[in-house]
Every structure is written in structure tokens, then in C-alpha cells.
Amino acid sequence: MSPAEIAPLLFLPDAVVFDMDGLMLDSERAINDCMARASRELGHDLPDSLWLQMIGGGDGLCRRLLAERIGDDATVELLACTEAMYDVVADAGIDHRPGIVELLDWLVAHGIPRAVATSTRRPLAMRKLAAAGLLPYFDAVATSSDVAAPKPAPDVYLLAASKLGIDPLRCLVLEDSPTGVRAALAAGMTPVQVPDMLVPDDAARALGHRIVGSLGDAQRLLEARLAAA
């Protein structure tokens, strides 16, 4: 994104709320790889497109999509095998998405509060953030364990705003998936999408939110807003 292409955000947010998987951590590729390896080890013939359908949807969606293909019992076995593989990867520290540390450092330097709102369950989310060295950057963490309904329901984003003590209308959300974007919009927040593995389709683009190519571009949007203030 060149300077000429940067239209400032309509407001300087009082807080920035981050999705985790696929936005800050390269975990979508990691979990998809574990699930594909577990599937092969257990003798299931599942298409790569199935893993993409699960991105941003939480545990319930994953279970339903798998059960439709291989049945309930096989799904339980596959997810247990996947979890064992993924635990090893997560505890070793999942790679950062490019630009995340620079953006977080910029927000800290400008005193803008930060929270995580993730579809991952709390114990695993905290382990992943800690192992990746990102947990100290955040003032609050909201997870799927803490709310009644997962994304695209707004619950986890509303909880993140509540934990920060900030009006949802004054929060900027950074998300990689359309599911998360819908959750942020339902919470009354302003989402900026940084796509990872899923290219936004026409339905996603029709939501009318800003879509950028990288976390660096998202940072430049904030810098442009600050300069215009």
C-alpha cells in the first residue's frame, strides 16, 4: 500500500482488538497441517478444501463439518489425534504473521489499549500467546471459553471491549476471516480485514469493511489517522 493509497480511518480508535489465529499467528496453516496429517494417519480421504471451510469458525463448526464426512466417532478420534499433534507445535511457539510485533510496539508506544478476541478455548489460547511471546502486549484476552456463542456472534468482541472498559463503537478490530469480520460488525466495532488463507469473496466484500494486504498496511492506516488528527 503506497502513501497515496492510504485513506485515514474515520476515527482514531480508543482500543484495538485482535483476532489470534491467522491474524497474529500463522496457526491456521499449522492446525490445517496437523489435521491433514492426522486424517491421513487414520485412513480418511478428506479434501484440502475442507480445512479452509473451518477457518474462523470455532470448534463447533469443525466438528460438524467432519461429522458430516466421516461420522461422529471418527470425528472424535481425528480431533484427538490432531490435538496431540498441535499441542507439540503450539508449545514450541507458532510463527508470527509478518508485521505483528511492529504493530503491537506502535500501539504500546502510542498508549492505545489492546485485547485479543479469539475462537480458541482459553487454556490453549493463553499457551499459544505465551509461547509466541505475545501475551505481555495485551491488556485483556477474551476466548470462546468465556462466552455463550462463538463468532460470528458478537459475544467475544463485546467481552473484549468490556474487559478493556471501552465502548465497542470506539474499538478497531483486526481480523483475517469473514466470520470474524461479521462478529466485529455485529458488536458495533470497525473491522479491518487482513486476509491470510481465505481470499475475500463477493459476499465478504459486500460487508463494506476495509480490506488490506498486510498488518503493515493496517499500521499505516492508524498512522495516517494519527497524522490527520
Score class of each variant (00 low, 15 high):
residue 48 D to I: 12
residue 63 R to V: 00
residue 41 E to V: 08
residue 77 E to P: 10
residue 47 P to Y: 03
residue 43 G to F: 08
residue 60 G to I: 12
residue 39 S to P: 14
residue 48 D to R: 15
residue 56 G to N: 06
residue 69 R to P: 02
residue 38 A to D: 02
residue 78 L to I: 03
residue 66 L to G: 14
residue 59 D to I: 14
residue 46 L to A: 13
residue 42 L to F: 04
residue 56 G to F: 11
residue 39 S to A: 08
residue 39 S to C: 14
residue 66 L to Y: 09
residue 73 D to V: 02
residue 70 I to M: 06
residue 77 E to N: 07
residue 78 L to H: 14
residue 52 L to S: 06
residue 54 M to L: 11
residue 49 S to C: 15
residue 73 D to I: 01
residue 46 L to V: 14
residue 72 D to Y: 15
residue 46 L to T: 12
residue 43 G to S: 02
residue 60 G to K: 13
residue 52 L to F: 03
residue 75 T to N: 07
residue 38 A to V: 07
residue 72 D to R: 12
residue 72 D to T: 09
residue 52 L to R: 04
residue 52 L to H: 05
residue 40 R to H: 10
residue 69 R to F: 05
residue 66 L to T: 04
residue 41 E to W: 09
residue 77 E to D: 13
residue 77 E to Y: 13
residue 55 I to D: 12
residue 56 G to S: 00
residue 62 C to G: 09
residue 53 Q to D: 12
residue 73 D to R: 11
residue 69 R to T: 10
residue 63 R to K: 04
residue 67 A to Y: 00
residue 65 L to T: 05
residue 55 I to C: 01
residue 57 G to C: 08
residue 38 A to E: 00
residue 59 D to L: 09
residue 54 M to G: 12
residue 64 R to Q: 01
residue 58 G to K: 03
residue 48 D to Y: 15
residue 41 E to P: 05
residue 53 Q to E: 11
residue 70 I to N: 00
residue 47 P to E: 05
residue 36 A to Y: 04
residue 42 L to W: 11
residue 68 E to G: 15
residue 74 A to R: 06
residue 66 L to Q: 05
residue 59 D to F: 12
residue 77 E to H: 08
residue 46 L to P: 01
residue 49 S to A: 13
residue 44 H to S: 11
residue 51 W to Y: 11
